[in-house]
Design a protein around this nucleic acid. Structure first.
Lengths: 337, 337
DNA sequence: CTGAAAGCGCTAACAG
DNA sequence: CTGTTAGCGCTTTCAG
């Protein structure tokens, strides 16, 4: 701070008024005559006055800032979510602070801590892969700060949730593969400790069952959620012996990793192997062949999550109630099947 | 705030100490005996105490939060920049608030205003397309808040700048097209009022000149910076008559728009038309054929910009000096030429 | 309609 | 080593 901040007192001094009068005038308080209001306003303008939100927030014991914790901003899906969040937050005069967990529960906890210290109005979070206990999120709630999870939820925390129907989305994806004539359908699954990993795996099982196909556990490979995990998983499938006819991957990055690896092995999609992802990342439609996948509408998820959070901020009694909003998924048919 | 916040006073009360003693103990002040420090620390733990940063910030008249203003978070390039920013900010115990301008100068100004009110420690910005005057950025500087521009700078503001050498990057791209045997090289240019639009256009001109090719202004189309702008621009080129042999687009999204449109017209890349972009967006390497483009290292740009900003925050005398850091570009050769 | 006083939670300067 | 006092900029009573 090079220049000393201009405060209500400076305006008051110049106008020979008391500073509380100025404060009221600036907030258009009915007490104050419009004549003085005008004087105050123009003086504020001249002096380049900017109200100090910090002081205001200290006084009112609350802020208009929401925190968003995502594994990584560099990710089509999350950046779209954040964009949606920022959009509705901006419209309601809220600020958005963004935190990256890098999939680390520890870093997530640190972020939560500083958010609490900053009297954050509410928090949106997608749980990190390594997050097993939700204790840091419970700390937020103990402070009366509402929490809404999106995408990957923390099951032991009673909070708002905005999710897609992972189970049904996965079922549709797998059923589509069956309808295309495949029965040896592999699944490149996500981490067992993420909700999306579990749910999509469940959908895979249900679909096979529904279609009367016996589950072959040799066709299921567990891995992470990123591109290199998909590549590694495909190599592992190859290693295990008989090639699958089709693969359902836990998400698009993983599908794309597999996709690249499949091509590297001189195989063609969908002739040798059909492939379905989950998420409809931007990339997927540009691949050759374009990837069949499950649309997730991340921007909408962000908007919905922010909406739910703001509702809870304004309605603090509900804060620790569970509440689920499910965003529709849709199978996007393209040429990888 | 459902639960009343726990403050130093609560700890003091329980321990029969004065609250300032508690404050000092918590900050590990040498005044305090380690015995009392221990008592204070464990009491803090028990009571679930979280220091109030708002009060602290009010006291010290400064925050540890930096603001980032980008046109849109949903953009490969910007989300990578933000990720880099957040990364170094986190390492230096700074928070990051993210604002979207949606390319609107007005919205940018509003964001600046609330950032000032929140006593932001510094601001990183990529100027919106519609930003012609930098007066709102100057308002930041009047408050002693350092500003660093990245990617698109605001030329009338003396501030830090982290850019790539757009001119040279563009020259290399165009020279590559010449070396590939093309001479009718079109340019899909960006808006004239953005620095990247102007500089890359300049590089295009210089390259042609250097190679002894006369500039044909019919081969230059101006447009925006997004995918649909690229598609529209290509249609316009077709409309004007003789087809170019090659196109240099102001950035990857525009190149991709053109790419899609070229394919839609049944033309093949690079046989009918060669294509070069700028930015090396993730998408570009997955296209078929993959796009030749100029690598920009957005994550590095973000890291560098944040580094420069933090340096300026710690060194407030420099704040209104111009200082430029240029991030290397590199031509990434792929199959679109 | 305008002014005075108190306090949000914390820290810094000074006294004991 | 611990306590006192004052104040960051603002809002909110309550008096005039």
């Amino acid at each position: 701070m090079a220049t000393k901040q201009v405060t209500v007192k400076d305006i008051a001094k110049r106008l020979q008024l008391h500073y509380t009068t100025v404060s009221k005038a600036l907030r258009d308080h009915p007490d104050i005559s419009s004549a003085t209001k005008d004087r105050v306003l123009s003086a504020a303008q001249e002096l380049d006055y900017h109200p100090n939100s910090i002081a205001k927030n200290l006084k009112r014991q609350a802020t208009s800032t929401i925190g968003v914790i995502v594994p990584s901003i560099r990710n089509d899906f999350f950046s779209a979510v954040i964009s949606g969040v920022e959009e509705v937050a901006y419209g309601r005069e809220f600020n958005t602070v963004v935190c990256q967990s890098n999939e680390s529960a520890e870093r997530e906890a640190i972020h939560v801590d500083t958010l609490i210290s900053n009297q954050i109005a509410g928090v949106l979070a997608c749980a990190a892969q390594s997050t097993t206990s939700g204790s840091h999120f419970k700390a937020l709630q103990r402070q009366g700060i509402p929490v809404v999870f999106f995408d990957r939820i923390c099951e032991d925390v009673e909070a708002g949730r905005v999710v897609v129907d992972d189970d049904v989305g996965a079922q549709n994806a797998v059923k589509h593969l069956v309808q295309a004539g495949h029965s040896r359908i592999a699944h490149i699954a996500g981490p067992k400790n993420t909700s999306i990993g579990r749910e999509r795996y469940r959908g895979y099982l249900t679909a096979l069952e529904t279609c009367g196909i016996a589950v072959d556990h040799d066709l299921v490979v567990y891995g992470g959620l990123e591109e290199n995990d998909g590549a590694a998983a495909f190599r592992q499938l190859l290693h295990r012996g008989r090639m699958p006819e089709a693969i359902f991957a836990v998400n698009d990055p993983v599908a794309i990793g597999a996709y690249t690896e499949i091509k590297r092995h001189g195989l063609t999609i969908p002739d040798n192997i059909a492939l379905v992802g989950f998420g409809n990342n931007t990339l997927s439609s540009y691949l050759d062949p374009p990837l069949t996948t499950v649309r997730q509408s991340p921007y909408e998820i962000g908007r919905a999550a922010a909406g739910m959070l703001l509702r809870r901020i304004e309605n603090p009694t509900q804060n620790t109630k569970s509440e689920v909003q499910v965003i529709e998924t849709e199978l996007v048919l393209r040429q990888s099947v």
